[in-house]
Computed example of a mutant assay.
Amino acid sequence: MRKAGHRTERMSAGVVADLGLHAMALPFETEPVPVVLAWHQRYDDDRTHAWLRDQVNAAVRQRFPAQD
């Protein structure tokens, strides 16, 4: 079983460092929390909105590659 916090740790590392915070592991296992990109259906066929969604998806995939 993959630890749910691994990706969270990677995602928060920059913010933690920038703000001088300390991150600690939870003392128990947790289920993964999905991260989703949602929009109103009226934007499904909007080319500008589709471009923005593609940019966000590409940036997230580049920064946090799948580890399956």
Results as ranks from 00 to 15, higher is better:
M1P: 02
M1H: 12
R2Q: 11
K3M: 14
K3G: 02
A4Q: 03
G5D: 10
G5S: 10
G5Y: 04
R7C: 04
R7A: 15
R7F: 04
T8A: 13
T8G: 10
E9R: 04
R10E: 11
R10W: 02
R10C: 01
M11T: 04
M11I: 09
S12R: 08
A13H: 01
A13I: 02
G14L: 00
V15Y: 09
V15F: 08
V15G: 01
V16E: 13
V16S: 13
V16H: 02
A17C: 00
D18F: 01
L19M: 09
L19H: 13
L19W: 15
G20F: 06
G20N: 05
G20A: 05
G20M: 03
L21I: 01
L21M: 15
H22E: 15
M24N: 07
L26G: 00
P27V: 07
P27T: 01
P27E: 09
F28M: 06
E29W: 00
T30F: 04
T30K: 12
T30V: 15
E31C: 06
P32H: 05
P32Q: 03
V33H: 07
P34V: 02
V35H: 13
V35S: 11
V36P: 02
V36G: 07
L37S: 08
L37R: 03
A38E: 14
A38M: 13
W39H: 10
W39I: 03
W39L: 12
W39T: 01
H40M: 07
Q41F: 06
R42M: 07
R42I: 13
Y43E: 14
Y43Q: 07
Y43S: 03
D44M: 03
D44P: 02
D45S: 09
D45Q: 13
D46S: 00
D46A: 11
R47T: 12
R47V: 11
T48S: 08
T48A: 15
H49I: 04
H49F: 07
H49E: 14
A50P: 01
W51E: 10
W51C: 12
L52F: 11
R53M: 14
R53V: 09
R53K: 11
R53C: 13
R53W: 03
R53I: 13
D54N: 12
D54M: 14
Q55R: 14
V56A: 07
V56T: 04
N57Q: 11
N57K: 13
A58W: 13
A58Y: 07
A58H: 12
A58K: 07
A58Q: 06
A59E: 09
V60E: 00
R61I: 13
Q62F: 09
Q62W: 12
Q62K: 10
Q62E: 07
Q62S: 13
R63H: 12
F64P: 06
F64R: 00
F64W: 08
P65G: 05
P65H: 07
A66L: 01
Q67L: 12
Q67G: 12
D68M: 03
